[in-house]
């Protein structure tokens, strides 16, 4: 009961904030930015791989958010809407950097057939972050969108304009790469 009351209250606050943003209230823009910039900056950081590009992408994305918020029909979906704009800006940034998301058949992947026993693999946050950071941008994008941004394979396929099976394959290969990198760098003790 308490949780549903809090949800209702949060919904009202969000509705009011979005409504103020739609009227062009700069203070409301600031509040919206404060509420979402942290999480969105992390998306940019993971997707672009460096702070300078992450800051530029975040800025571009928020400018689009402010300019287009009057088109947002359902204030309840503001989080998903903002996140999608940020992700789209990150993807545009990657495309400008000539990162292509090709079908699996067209890419040459160095296979590592070593089977890693996941149950005995001691993961750490620092090791995974470091490994993801050095992944090829194409792999990193698919892995980030699936594991951190929690989009489905189908949604990722639509975003990258590739098939769902390619997304699945690329994700599996990206995950393998992470394991290989961690193993090679001997990050895991």
């Amino acid at each position: 009961m308490q949780a549903s009351a809090n949800n209702l209250n949060n919904t009202t606050i969000t509705d009011h904030l979005v409504s103020r943003c739609k009227k062009g209230d700069v203070h409301a823009f600031r509040e919206l930015y404060n509420a979402y910039s942290g999480a969105m900056y992390n998306i940019c950081l993971r997707m672009t791989g460096n702070t300078a590009d992450a800051e530029d992408t975040l800025q571009e994305a928020f400018m689009q958010i402010f300019r287009n918020i009057e088109r947002l029909e359902n204030a309840g979906s503001v989080t998903a809407w903002i996140k999608r704009i940020v992700v789209n800006h990150c993807l545009s940034h990657l495309r400008r950097k000539k990162v292509y998301f090709e079908e699996v058949d067209n890419i040459d992947i160095e296979e590592d057939n070593a089977i890693v026993d996941e149950d005995n693999f001691a993961w750490t946050v620092a090791a995974i972050k470091e490994a993801i950071h050095v992944l090829p941008p194409g792999y990193r994008t698919v892995l980030n969108l699936y594991i951190f941004e929690e989009y489905s394979h189908k949604e990722i396929a639509n975003m990258l304009d590739i098939s769902e099976s390619t997304v699945k394959t690329q994700y599996m290969r990206a995950k393998d790469k992470v394991r290989q990198i961690i193993k090679q760098k001997n990050v895991i003790r």
Binding site: R30, Y33, S37, G38, A39, Y41, N42, L45, A54, E55, L58, Q59, F62, V125, I128, K129, F148
Partner: peptide
């Protein structure tokens, strides 16, 4: 634990 600190003030 995967989250970093937010953006610097210069972005706003």
């Amino acid at each position: 634990n995967f989250e970093e600190a937010g953006p610097p003030p210069g972005v706003w």
